[in-house]
């Protein structure tokens, strides 16, 4: 079991300021939670470009290759000429390639989402229901007791509505 300190804020600015000052005091392991997406919060924890994009790209390229080879191989396994068309006919096969590109791209993006975000994570975590409604919260993992007092102080100073300690699964 590990301890976690949760500070709950009513206003966005307070929440962001608290996060900034925690960062400044050297606490890097902070989790910012908000009911809506806040780009400033992402910048504070240092998130700019997501690695999901590599998944999408790889998926789409794999899909393009798979789609085209699927069509070609299916045509060659059992050669059945139809309508005077070529066995490997590019125009129709490109349509198949197109669709499979998108299919694989979407599936890879889904995989990427799970991989990058670390979800699904059904373990108990520092979380307060209100943060999904109209509150902002910061969860910090304190290393020692001295740190935890300092964290609590920082959170309170920034205008936290409530500060509490939680026991969560490591």
């Amino acid at each position: 079991m590990a301890k976690s300190i949760l500070g709950i804020f009513q206003y966005e600015e307070d929440f962001l300021n608290a996060a900034k000052s925690l960062k400044a005091s050297g606490f890097n392991d902070i989790t910012l939670m908000s009911p809506i997406r806040l780009e400033e919060a992402e910048e504070i924890v240092g998130l700019y470009k997501s690695n999901v994009r590599y998944f999408s790209l790889t998926g789409a390229i794999t899909g393009a290759i798979t789609g085209f080879s699927l069509a070609v191989v299916c045509a060659l396994v059992f050669i059945l000429p139809t309508g005077g068309r070529a066995i490997i006919a590019f125009p129709p096969f490109l349509v198949i390639t197109y669709e499979v590109t998108i299919l694989f791209g979407v599936l890879a993006t889904l995989l990427g989402f799970h991989f990058v975000s670390g979800l699904p994570a059904w373990r108990d975590k520092a979380y307060k229901v209100d943060t999904n409604i109209d509150r902002f919260s910061i969860a910090v993992d304190p290393g020692s007791d001295t740190d935890s007092t300092k964290i609590e102080q920082t959170l309170r100073d920034a205008g936290a509505e409530e500060v509490k300690q939680l026991e969560v699964a490591a």
């Binding site: 045509a75 060659l76 000429p81 005077g84 068309r85 070529a86 066995i87 490997i88 006919a89 590019f90």
Partner: peptide
Amino acid sequence: KIKEYTRPGYYE
């Protein structure tokens, strides 16, 4: 082979 298979009218 590729030429043969990509030509329209294969088996004409």
